[in-house]
Structures are given as C-alpha cells and as structure tokens.
Design a binder for these strands. Structure first.
Lengths: 292, 292
DNA sequence: ATCACTTACGGGTGACGTAAAAATC
DNA sequence: GATTTTTACGTCACCCGTAAGTGAT
C-alpha cells in the first residue's frame, strides 16, 4: 500500500509541472518532494518520470498513476466528508419550511423536544424542492403549504395563515372590509425577502416594480416606522400583536392569499418526532374548535 | 487526509471484531492498534467506537467510516495494480493464437522485430474469445483461422495448414492417397492437448474415446516412438521434417481439416507491427506462388 | 485467572528542513 | 547567472514493541 502523503505530493507535482511549484502549493521544501517522488517510484517498483536536462516530468506510466492517485485522494476525502456529515447529522436536525411563520411558531417546541440538537432551519419558495430534499435526507422535517401524496411520508396539518395588507388609516382603501390583490395594483408595498412561497404569490398578482423587497426584517421595520408605505401582514402576525399604530390591516380575499401548513417527515422517522407532531396536532385541533 | 496505514488497521478491526485478532492478522501488536484507533478518531474528530466493559466495537459512524475506508483501500490497490499492469504491458507483447503452428513459425520474427520485449503467447480454441481479448487489449496480436470483419482491426493472411494422419506403413488404410475423418472412426489416435481449435475439429468428427489426448509434447513424442498408434500431423509439420520412420502421413480431405491463418491487430497498432506484417505477407505471397 | 483494551516508556525509522552541489538553460 | 533537481546531513516526529495496568467475565 502507498501512503496518502506520497500520493498528495505526487498529484500536486502532476498538477503543477515542477517540484518547486508543487512544494510551494504544499508548503514543504522542494528537496522533500524530490525525495518523495523517488520513494514513490521505488515503492511501486516502476519508472514514473522522465529525468532529462534536470527537468522532471511524468512518463506515460506516471500519467496513468496520477489519474489513479487522484481517485485515491478523492476516496479519502469522501471518507472524511461522509463521516463528518453523518456525525453532524446525529447532532443536528434540519428543517425546511415554505414560510417563516410556522418555523417561528414551532421553534420553542423543537428546542424542548430535541434537547442537545442543533436546529438548522431553511426557507424555500417551493414545496417540490422541500419534498425532494426531505426524501434525500437533506431535511428531517419540512413545513409545506400543500398536502403531499406519498405513503413514505407522514403528514400532520398544522395551522392556517392568511396574508393581510397593512395601510395608513388615511389610505383611500383603508375603509374597506377586505381587498383583492387586483385592487393593490399600482400601490408600492414593502415586504421582506424572507417570506418563502409568499413571494411567489405576490409576484404572481402584482408587478415587480410595486414590491419594495427588503433584505432584512430590521430594514423592513425601520421603513414601516419611517414611511407611510403599506406592507404585508397576516392574521397570525396580528394575533401575536404585530400591529402598527395609525394603520389598519385588511385581509386579502384571494384564494391563494390563504395557506394551510402541513408538517411532514419521512414515515420511518415518525416515531422519532412523535412529541413534536402531538404539539402540531394540538394547534390544528385548537384551530378547528375556534371555527366551530 | 488520513494515512493508509490507519485505514488498513481500521478495516482489519472492522473485519475481525477485536483488536487482538486484527493485530494477529496484521502482524503487529495489539497496543499498536489501540493507539491507532484513537489516532484515527482524533484525526477525524469524531467518535467511531463504543467503549464499554473493556470491549471495543464500532458505532454507527464507525460502520459508515469502515465502508468508506474499504473504498479507499480498494482505490489504493487499484492504483498499484493498474500501474504494474501498464508498466508490464510496456515491456510485454501478448499474442493469442488459435493454433500452435503459426506461433512457432513466427516466433523468430517476433523476437527479432520486438527487441527487448517479453513475448507472451497463449493458445485458445475460439476465434471469438481471441478477438474480444484483442479488442479489450488483453492481446496485442492474435492469429485466427477465420477473417474477422471489423474496420477497427487490421488483418493479414499468413499461411495455410492441412492436418494429416500419420500411420504405420502396415496399417490397413496406409495405402490410400487421402482419408476422410469418417474413415478414422474407431481408430485410437494420439494427439496433444495443445492444438488450439484443431481439438474442436477432431472432437466434432471423432468420438472422445478414440482420442488419446496427451498433456505434453514430450509424452506424445514418447508414445509415438514406443507404440504403433496413429497420430495427427500436418503439411507444415511435414515440411519442417517432422516425419517418423516406418510411417506414412495421409492428408485428411475434409473441408475443415484445412485452415487459412490470419494475423490480426487493432488498426491503431498497425504501424507498430508493420515489420512483422511484412514478414507475414511474405509467407502469403510465397504460398500463392507455390500454388501457381 | 483470563481476556480485552489502555497507559507508559524507550527505541529506531523515516519524513522533513537546511545547506550545498550538479546540471541545464 | 538563473532555474531546477539532486545529494548530504542533522533533527525531530511518530510509529512500533515491551511491559505494566485496568476492568470485566
């Protein structure tokens, strides 16, 4: 067997063309490489280099060897990467969501029922991406706004959300009970970039130029304070007390301004997250009771 | 990067289950392995083992690591094997033949036009096998008794051979001009096992029980001397003076008791073997002139 | 007491760097 | 003379073996 350090040095030479450049890349001295290349030849029992005019270069055997050496290094790096990833996955839970609200709402639940685990959350604008990344184990849990049909997935309804538009009381349409997206056309509206699939919904109904998209919640809050511009809100946010003085919030009546969230895991993991799903079911029941 | 010796030791432990058994397999002491396993864990920065009741075993991460470590070792062995094989191929020419005679006839040519190369010859009973092994580079040259149709192959007709039956002068059919295989049925005949495709021909026409197959030419020659049993000969062998006193050789008239040999290489190698093909063409021309 | 692994210590190989030489342009 | 590789030499790291220790069956 050939030790890895020899192959690393050999591949560096194959890439760099001279021992000097390779030695700089590897942060070793050049005689070290000269010696190593000899040792590699000796251990393989085969000529790997042309030595001509104090110029070292790979011969045909050497080129072949370099290809295979590269594969060994890749396999070695693979070992390291996969072991690290697996070890990490033992201490980490990855959660993908189509929307920020359910994540925020469930975070305390995650933290109390997954003690000691690092919770990693990610927003996505597409349920399909979330699902495929759930199946390929990149995510352990996902929160969708549609119910997937796959017997390998376990799904639990969570809660509903409808988006609102928050306007100055003096705004022409502030007196209405509710509005359609249609009626918001031509009005410049503030919104955050981190709203998951809602971004798609808004873009579908409104023109790009009307959406004043902010990269951070801080920037958004500041502009809401400092300006009279409308911004998007939701029934859930209002419930949590997110109302700005001097403004009214009107529900948006369109069908797709409303979402029902589902929490989903792979069926094999169902037992692992039972406590979490119990909490999620609690939300759904409470919601149903409120409707009744 | 993780050095190979650590992975070898780790895989040995994964196979053997205890450090002691692994240490015996690797011919090192057991504390060496204990130390190495710790070092491997440290270098990966990850727990790989359960340590309980002075019993060491792989945990889930360890099992994953063992799988990937095995791949690294295989890649490493692949490097060694391929480099050796390629280096060998630079000094060796592999020739496959359907029959021993053309090989013997061409050996001096090979030796003089492939100076310094080790010439490796092999007999095969099937042109198909020879061809596929020529294409997959196991052979560099093959000698067939049929003309292959493949534009990636370069072919040159070599010479003809017809097999004869050599009998005691007193044998009932020794007076004939020629015989068919049919007429040899029921007669026990000596032959060598190393006759390539001729073995198939003989088996197709004669019963297994009648063929007294010898594993070496020495054994065959001795039995020819010591007995009055018939044996197979050929026009080419007779030309070379291989006649036994007190015997006559009759040609076998069947169509497939005659063969035309072709020397074949991959088209890409045609130039490399031009001198050899010139000699081969010389044989073919000489043969044609003799017929005219 | 035995088995299996760990810890402690000492030795020898060998991988590395520095310095200098050799060879080619 | 500049660039690149090779040789020589000393040093330090580290891999190994021996021997003793720990813990469980």
């Amino acid at each position: 067997m050939i030790e890895i350090y020899l192959l690393e040095q050999f591949c560096a030479f194959a890439r760099c063309g001279t021992l000097l450049k390779a030695s700089e890349e590897l942060h070793v001295t050049q005689p070290t490489l000269s010696r190593s290349m000899k040792k590699l030849e000796q251990e393989l029992g085969v000529q790997l280099f042309h030595r001509k005019n104090s110029k070292l270069s790979l011969n045909e055997t050497g080129k072949l060897a370099a290809e295979f050496a590269e594969k060994v290094l890749i396999a070695n790096q693979d070992l390291i990467d996969h072991v690290h990833a697996y070890d990490r996955s033992l201490r980490t839970i990855s959660i993908g969501s189509c929307s920020p609200f359910p994540i925020n709402e469930l975070m305390p639940t995650f933290q109390s029922y997954l003690p000691g685990k690092t919770i990693l959350t990610e927003l996505s604008d597409s349920d399909e991406k979330l699902l495929s990344n759930l199946i390929n184990r990149q995510y352990d849990l996902v929160i969708l706004h549609s119910l997937p049909e796959d017997k390998n997935l376990f799904c639990q309804r969570f809660m509903d959300e409808r988006i609102y538009i928050s306007l100055e009381e003096s705004h022409p349409i502030a007196g209405k009970e509710s509005v359609f997206f249609e009626e918001l056309r031509g009005i410049r509206i503030l919104m955050s970039v981190n709203v998951g699939f809602w971004m798609d919904i808004c873009r579908r109904h409104l023109s790009e130029a009307d959406l004043l998209i902010q990269n951070s919640m801080d920037a958004l809050d500041e502009l809401v304070e400092a300006s009279s511009l409308p911004f998007f809100n939701s029934d859930r946010m209002i419930e949590l007390g997110y109302q700005v003085p001097g403004r009214v919030s009107l529900p948006i009546s369109d069908e797709d301004a409303h979402a029902t969230y589902w929490v989903v895991c792979r069926t094999e993991d169902q037992a692992k997250y039972r406590s979490i799903f119990n909490v999620v079911r609690g939300y759904a029941i409470k919601h149903d009771e409120r409707l009744a």
